[in-house]
Design a protein around this nucleic acid. Structure first.
Lengths: 113, 113
DNA sequence: ATCAAACTTAGCCATGTAGCTAACTATACA
DNA sequence: TGTATAGTTAGCTACATGGCTAAGTTTGAT
């Protein structure tokens, strides 16, 4: 990883783990406490908390403590940067395919004349 | 990382590095040899090759060797799984917001009666 | 036949990641 | 006031990652 992790680095790295993706999928259905989130995962709490913290560090999840329980929820615009990047890549890629397509089309026309 | 890396794990992990994202962005503009790809990156060739291999392992890049030069290109449907996953998450999230919206709307109506 | 180019392999090192247990803190409840 | 609940902190291990150099291999050009 780079010395200065960009937001994209953090996002993609956070998403590169099934436990963390499962947490996000669960949170997409609504907020939950740490132990509610942890329940389905066969893992010691501290290990699980480390995953949660990565998601928070990446800004994908927000948590607040009420009494002794910590409630977590999805950060509203969580996936925007990641989706933007992927969208941009696809745009370049498709733009290239279009230009290629244009080129081939032009070639065919020229061949006819 | 999990014991059995799913395709998504590999994809997201591959994308979680600026060097590798730069390679993909370059390849979106067309195929290139290893040394063409490596040129902009201030890094020893073997280190760079390691990045390239990760992209290939993830199935994001395809390479073929012609003579002594290896040509790389973007795998056509490269980002589909990643975009699908993100899309699904957003669908759940938005579905939830819609249901919340419905709920609030219903609540308002009931309050009026 | 030689030499340079373009990788490729091997091996080393520093740091990061994912998991664990044990012990601690802070709140709620009886 | 004591005890259980819900996290949290500390400290450990094993393995993955990202970087390097040095040396090897294959192929193209002379």
């Amino acid at each position: 990883m780079a010395k200065f992790d960009s937001l994209l680095d953090l996002h993609f790295a956070a998403l590169a783990d099934p436990t963390r993706r499962a947490i996000l999928a669960r949170l997409a259905r609504g907020r939950a406490s740490v132990s509610e989130l942890a329940a389905p995962h066969d893992m010691a709490l501290p290990s699980f908390m480390a995953h949660l913290r990565k998601l928070e560090d990446a800004g994908l999840v927000i948590s607040t403590k009420e009494g002794r329980v910590r409630h977590c929820e999805l950060s509203p615009e969580a996936f925007a940067p990641v989706q933007d990047w992927l969208g941009a890549q696809r745009a370049i890629w498709e733009g290239r395919l279009n230009r290629l397509d244009d080129y081939v089309t032009r070639l065919m026309k020229e061949r006819k004349t």
